[in-house]
Design a protein around this nucleic acid. Structure first.
Lengths: 104, 104
DNA sequence: TCCTTATATTGATGAACTTCGATACAAGGC
DNA sequence: GCCTTGTATCGAAGTTCATCAATATAAGGA
């Protein structure tokens, strides 16, 4: 479980960020910077915890698995395994911290 | 001047997005998915309208120019030219719409 | 045990990205 | 006109990324 940094980068009056903070934010924005991953996140937001088998968006199974790994490593999603199946869900605090960074 | 779409992708209960909406959001997140560009945005947020000549973050002048173009095309920044100088500033609505998309 | 099924990992390929040096453009001063 | 200066564009090099087919792993059922 990685700690979620809550910094503000982009709202008017945001203080200057350290290199590490900038890099961390960039990593999490990068996780959202792909249409397939955004579609996955959007589906998880709409339906809550969802089976991997329902997260196919016109790409192959290994590609889905790869994107889920990117989202996991960015701390944006969690996985719960039940037998052979895996169920993913959003980590709301992670998304909220990004919204806060943008000034939401 | 491009219109800013205000959709919600990632907050719990967000409705499913169309492909075009997903692609548009991905493009804007991609603009934030680079440390140099995030540093530029952070500086603009901290200082307001700023001369290009103050936006060097250890990269060459053509690289700064390239990143500013990416941010411009994503609609995240605006430019105002005064003679030979160019002054960039954030487009607050664009950043707010991204924060909204994340559920802020 | 073997077989099937769901997901993850590996390895390769082609596309996209970041970066730079060189060059072009545009504005002001001479 | 020419020169200087700030910014943008071009072209190339190296890196990262998205994607797939093939394979591996892991769990359940026969």
């Amino acid at each position: 479980m990685k700690k979620i940094a809550t910094v503000s980068c982009c709202a008017p009056g945001s203080p200057p960020l350290r290199d590490r903070e900038v890099a961390g934010l960039a990593t999490r924005f990068k996780a959202l910077a792909d249409p397939t991953r955004l579609a996955i996140v959007n589906r998880l937001a709409a339906k809550g915890e969802t089976c991997v088998c329902e997260l196919n968006f016109g790409v192959s199974q290994p590609t889905v698995s790869h994107h889920l790994k990117v989202l996991r490593e960015a701390g944006l999603v969690d996985v719960r395994r039940r037998g052979t199946w895996a169920y993913y869900r959003l980590v709301p605090e992670a998304l909220r911290s990004l919204a806060f960074a943008l000034g939401g």
